[in-house]
């Protein structure tokens, strides 16, 4: 069986896979990183989004072998070792941007990539457009959009701390 070597959340792994093994299958079934989810089979829902070499990618639409040599970050790799959450994780909690939590890992990974690629800042409309590749069935996106808007200020250093959600 072919082997793939990749770095996931800072740790190097060499894993035997089939040619057809998808990156998400490697993460979930071989590395037991089950925070990355599978919500569809048409590459649309975005529950499986991870970062590959710094870009958000649907891990259900990438062969594990295509990720050979890549640096992967999953939802499990976002918080600091001391447990401090990434500002985007914190914002999702503060703004009640998740309900069942299933789309959340992919949503957070996409949101981080979106904000990082737009240092000039994103309007509400741009955030909504930027979430084209992620489906959420619970929240109606309202609070997700608010959370991303708040997180970007912290990620870009415009605010030291997350703006609290209004009561």
């Amino acid at each position: 069986m072919p082997q793939v070597t990749l770095t996931v959340n800072g740790a190097s792994h060499t894993v035997e896979v089939e040619g057809r093994t998808l990156l998400v299958e490697l993460l979930r079934e071989k590395l037991r990183l089950t925070g990355t989810h599978v919500g569809c089979d048409t590459s649309q829902c975005g529950a499986c989004v991870v970062h590959v070499n710094g870009d958000s990618v649907k891990s259900c639409t990438l062969l594990a072998l295509q990720a050979d040599g890549a640096e992967i970050t999953t939802i499990e790799g976002l918080a600091k070792p001391d447990g401090t959450l990434h500002p985007m994780q914190e914002a999702f909690r503060e703004y009640h941007a998740l309900q069942c939590g299933f789309c959340t890992p992919g949503m957070v990974m996409s949101a981080i990539d979106l904000v990082q690629k737009h240092p000039q800042g994103l309007s509400e409309k741009e955030i909504r457009e930027g979430l084209e590749g992620n489906l959420c069935r619970c929240t109606g996106y309202h609070n997700i959009v608010k959370a991303i808007a708040a997180a970007q200020d912290v990620m870009h250093g415009r605010r030291a701390e997350l703006a609290p959600a209004a009561e």
Binding site: G46, D55, S56, V57, K58, T61, S110, E132, G133
Partner: peptide
Amino acid sequence: IGDTQVRNR
């Protein structure tokens, strides 16, 4: 084209 993730690949 597609969405951000599609455009990244």
